[in-house]
């Protein structure tokens, strides 16, 4: 029956594995309860999504730069910078909201995985921004992924914060022991 019911190569405008698996996990937990809840398909929430989560930004990338790149896929309705929960400084992600679903899909296809401020950025379709989501959820206020990162990333505050602390502590102890 095909005649392009499926494409001959993968599409880049699908929700990411991260989004899908996150939802699956939730569904799995639901199932442990006695009453199996009416589960929502992940695709359903994204059917008309106009918002994108944008990740792997440098902490120094400005709204203007993001705007400059993302406006290539359509007029931007709203741009919400991701902030460190405590310092209220950019912590490397943002939400971009377009006026149309098509613009958001085009952005996944044409901009996700390309460079902004000389970093490969990632884009993911998002069901929509809600107050509170602009803040990092990591222990130290930034994004979780920046806590334990072992590689040095000058665009994202150097080493992961928790990792860095531990390193520092070890170094100090080593010094004290001598």
């Amino acid at each position: 029956m095909s005649l392009l019911a499926r494409n001959t190569v993968d599409r880049l405008d699908r929700p990411s594995a991260y989004y899908v698996s996150k939802n699956k996990r939730r569904r799995f937990n639901d199932r442990d309860e006695d009453e199996p809840q009416q589960e929502e398909k992940p695709d359903e929430k994204l059917k008309n999504a106009t918002t994108l989560y944008v990740g792997n930004l440098s902490f120094y990338t400005t709204e203007e730069q993001i705007h400059e790149l993302f406006a290539k896929c359509g007029e931007i309705k709203r741009l919400v910078m991701g902030l460190d929960r405590f310092n209220k400084t950019p912590c490397g992600f943002c939400f971009v909201e377009y006026y149309t679903h098509q613009d958001a899909l085009d952005c996944l296809k044409y901009i996700g995985g390309t460079k902004l401020d000389e970093r490969i950025i990632r884009t993911d379709l998002d069901p929509g921004f809600e107050e509170g989501r602009q803040f990092g959820r990591g222990k130290s206020g930034g994004q979780v992924r920046d806590e334990y990162r072992e590689e040095y990333d000058p665009g994202r505050g150097g080493y992961g914060r928790a990792y860095d602390e531990q390193r520092q502590r070890e170094e100090d102890e080593y010094g004290a022991g001598r």
Binding site: V9, D10, S21, K24, R25, R27
Partner: peptide, 16 residues
């Protein structure tokens, strides 16, 4: 690995 149709890796989490 380029993900042509039918070539997708299955992850075990896909099976609920």
């Amino acid at each position: 690995n380029q993900g042509y149709r039918g070539g997708r890796k299955r992850r075990y989490r896909d099976d609920d």
